[in-house]
Amino acid sequence: MRLEVDITGKTFRSAAGGTHEVLAPVKFALQSGEVGVLIGPSGCGKSTMLRIILGLDHDFAGHIARPPEARIGMVFQEPRLLPWRSVEQNVRLAAPDVADAKLAELFRILELEAHRDHYPGELSLGLARRVALARAFAVEPDILVLDEPLASLDDALAGRLRDEIATLVASRPVMTLLVTHSLDDAVRLGDRLFFLSPRPARIVAEMPIGIPRATRGEAEIAAIKASLAQRTQGDRTERDAS
């Protein structure tokens, strides 16, 4: 399976009547088993790009080739839970085929066991985000799309969930698209990092990470980060010089 993104442009008409360009030409492809990471400044158009890729927004120029039968698991930037359904129902409605054991396992990992019967209005934002993660994992997706999934979680939990995402990605052939502001998450999870420019977003740098995720130790991660810092430093001096 392969996801091909070829957006040539996206503009929004503002309420005042003007138009503003949100996406410049963006082109990349993702294979099964790969994790692509989108990194870019706030407001540059990342969420907009995800909506286009998922087929939620058809008003753009370009072409998206998505495997037609692919099951999608999505963690939206806001949790987007049904306030009138319990935590468990929220997950089951999206993933009706999920086995009880699998669900129990997910709730255990995400530390949601005590909250199964709660309604989303009774959850903290961090808890709601975890429910959204549980929902995305429960569908056993072919394409996993995560829009800043680890925001508003404490470091320890974020770390554990990051490992969980890594395990899931390793356990099945799933292609993952992750949006994050954390270079650390990007380096630990990603196979290919796409650095985006401010709005209108285009890919300013694409960086593949050669070392397989499983064998990336702390030393390797530090090394990748250092080389990244060097590169961005280099970009900056280049830009300053021109």
Partner: peptide, 12 residues
């Protein structure tokens, strides 16, 4: 609308 989008992404 955002919940409609959720439903459509999860192919309900």
């Amino acid at each position: 609308r955002s919940l409609d989008e959720m439903a459509s992404v999860f192919a309900m």
